[in-house]
Amino acid sequence: MSLRGTREVSKNYQIFRLTGLLDAFSEPAFRKVIGNCIDEGPKDVVLVLSQIDFIDSSGLGALVQLVKQAQTGGGSLQVVTNPRVTQTVKLVRLEKFLSLQPSVDIALENLKK
């Protein structure tokens, strides 16, 4: 599989640290796994994409769906990026909607209380 990751769950939030490619090949499993975890809770989520080598339109679409899912459940989703991911997201003007953050610490501070 082209995408790997770990999940860390605390009382109020969960953090996913992902590596590899977030593309059309990995997107269905990514969306299903993260979506199920959002449903299980906690509802506030930090996706750490700083080790992602590539993201395509399928990956961006999955991120948009996951943000909406978290918000519908009363939570939020923060995305920690690297320059490559940030550039791709900015091309489609989703940087504010996807709550791009430079670090996990800042993302945690920005989670809804």
Rank of each mutant, 00 (worst) to 15 (best):
S2T: 15
L3A: 08
R4D: 11
R4I: 11
T6N: 08
E8G: 03
E8H: 09
E8P: 04
V9L: 08
K11Q: 12
Q14L: 05
Q14A: 03
I15K: 06
F16C: 00
R17W: 08
R17G: 06
R17K: 14
L18S: 04
T19L: 04
G20T: 02
L22E: 00
L22S: 00
D23K: 07
A24M: 13
F25S: 07
S26K: 09
E27D: 11
E27Q: 14
E27W: 03
P28R: 05
P28V: 06
A29G: 12
A29R: 14
A29S: 11
F30N: 04
R31F: 13
V33N: 07
I34F: 05
I34A: 00
I34W: 02
I34E: 00
I34S: 02
G35Y: 10
G35K: 10
N36M: 10
N36T: 08
I38C: 02
E40Y: 08
E40T: 12
G41P: 01
P42I: 05
K43L: 13
D44G: 07
D44P: 09
D44Y: 13
D44M: 12
V45Y: 03
V46N: 02
L47T: 07
L47G: 05
L47Q: 06
L47I: 13
L47V: 10
L49K: 01
L49D: 02
L49M: 12
L49Q: 02
S50N: 13
I55Q: 03
I55R: 01
D56S: 09
D56N: 13
D56Q: 11
S57E: 09
S58N: 13
S58V: 05
L60I: 14
G61R: 04
V64G: 04
V64W: 03
V64P: 05
Q65I: 08
Q65S: 12
Q65H: 11
V67R: 15
V67L: 13
Q69M: 11
Q69F: 02
Q69A: 08
Q69H: 10
Q71E: 15
G73I: 05
G74C: 05
G74S: 06
G75D: 00
G75W: 01
G75H: 00
G75M: 01
S76W: 02
V79F: 02
V80Q: 01
T81R: 01
T81H: 12
T81P: 00
N82D: 06
N82V: 06
R84P: 04
R84Y: 12
V85S: 02
V85W: 01
T86M: 11
Q87N: 14
T88I: 14
T88Q: 09
V89S: 00
K90G: 03
K90P: 04
K90C: 11
L91H: 04
V92H: 11
V92E: 09
R93V: 12
R93E: 13
E95C: 07
K96E: 15
K96T: 15
F97M: 11
Q101G: 01
P102D: 11
S103E: 10
S103K: 09
D105M: 10
D105T: 15
I106Y: 05
I106R: 08
I106T: 07
I106G: 03
A107S: 04
E109R: 14
N110Q: 14
L111Q: 06
L111V: 06
K112V: 14
K112H: 13
